[in-house]
Design a protein around this nucleic acid. Structure first.
Lengths: 220, 220
DNA sequence: CCGGCTCTGTAACCAAGGTTACAGACGCCC
DNA sequence: GGGCGTCTGTAACCTTGGTTACAGAGCCGG
């Protein structure tokens, strides 16, 4: 049966589930829905009712705010072992989604129906787990608000380039998507960084020459 | 004693506290700190450790993100009966504050120390209460992200003007503060709205002439 | 080797919003 | 009524970021 291996993987990724009572776990395995989604699938979208709580077993979900004109601002990613704060919030508040979730890679999910999620919250350990992730995500969102409201794009770009190793393989378009901007601007800004000797550019590759300088730029 | 009347008011505003066990309540009353703060007091600030969980008894706290250059973006307000999501998140995640809270009017607070807040979370009803407010605030924050990232200022201004009655008494500066912008721009935009016949302007007063038109502008 | 694809570079132009710098208007208190 | 502080109007200018419109470069498969 499909849920058995999924169940094992689930507990490996979400060890907190091991603390559940046997009854809760059985119910969970019986009722949760196992999904295998190809990359690029829209898992949920704005204004849509929340049908369940997703546990990510493999792959990842990119959660974004979509602008009317088609541009997107990434909010966060949900990777295996994490939870989706927006799904939690929607389930808890009986409210529709206010963002979009798209699989970034082929992704396997275990989706727990609303009522079972509420039941899970009856277990102290699980509740604490969700609370904890809530609080981390809130901090991320605050950070994001700060960035979009106050930081200039070159600062955000500099910050984005940092902490991904000394040599990153990516296109300007991907960076633009990550910043919620457009390719031309990223090219322009990267050229600026290159002229300052902070990075070296080549096709689908950016080499970080001066991490300290980038950090200074990002922080100011 | 000072906490007795405060305790009554507290339960009137946060009825969920009435469901606590007698022991928890006693402990709470004994250890919580009663604060009377004049308008304009900074209750907490960025990077500061979170010392306790505030219950607002009267007045209100304006929670803002501060820009390096001194401008501020309002995130939300905490009014009597509500809770502060950032305080919760910081206590839960053992993280420092990532925003600033300032009293808008003279405000009375009951501040529950960290350990007692954790104890409160041991009570199911209280936990549910906090979860619920968490989820509402998340929705607000998502809305805010959408606005600052995608909406133009005239749209945000139009939205701000709506739903406050047909005649609002406020200064351009106050509106600018609410939008995280500056006075000149608000004046300019208001002039535009007036020219379109959407509002009529006079000193410290804005009359809404065409709510439907404003809504159309705000929504597009 | 050629055709087509993706990725990058770049320039001209534009719109939004912010900054600077005043001037006048209104209200209030002495 | 005169002086002062707050509020508003407004114009000139600047920066940021986005849009449009190409051109060339690297790569790959047929």
């Amino acid at each position: 049966m499909t849920t058995a291996p999924a169940g094992d993987a689930l507990i490996a990724l979400y060890p907190i589930l091991a603390t559940l009572t046997a009854r809760t776990r059985q119910r969970l395995e019986a009722r949760a829905q196992f999904l295998e989604l190809p990359a690029g699938t829209t898992v949920f979208d704005e204004r849509q009712a929340c049908r369940g709580f997703p546990f990510v077993i493999s792959g990842s979900i990119r959660v974004v705010k979509a602008a009317p004109n088609g541009r997107e601002l990434p909010l966060y990613r949900v990777t295996p072992g994490e939870t989706c704060i927006i799904s939690s919030a929607c389930l808890l508040g009986q409210a529709p989604y206010n963002a979009r979730g798209v699989t970034e890679a082929d992704t396997t999910l275990l989706v727990v129906p609303n009522e079972d999620f509420q039941a899970l919250l009856g277990e102290q350990a699980f509740r604490d787990f969700v609370f904890q992730l809530f609080s981390e995500r809130i901090a991320d969102l605050m950070q994001l608000i700060e960035e979009v409201a106050f930081r200039k794009l070159d600062q955000r770009l500099a910050a984005l380039l940092l902490g991904k190793g000394q040599r990153l393989h990516t296109t300007h378009q991907q960076l633009a998507d990550e910043l919620g901007s457009v390719r031309e601007i990223v090219s322009r800004l990267l050229k600026g960084l290159a002229e300052q000797g902070l990075v070296a550019l080549s096709r689908e590759q950016i080499e970080i020459l001066d991490p300290a300088g980038l950090r200074r730029l990002a922080g100011g």
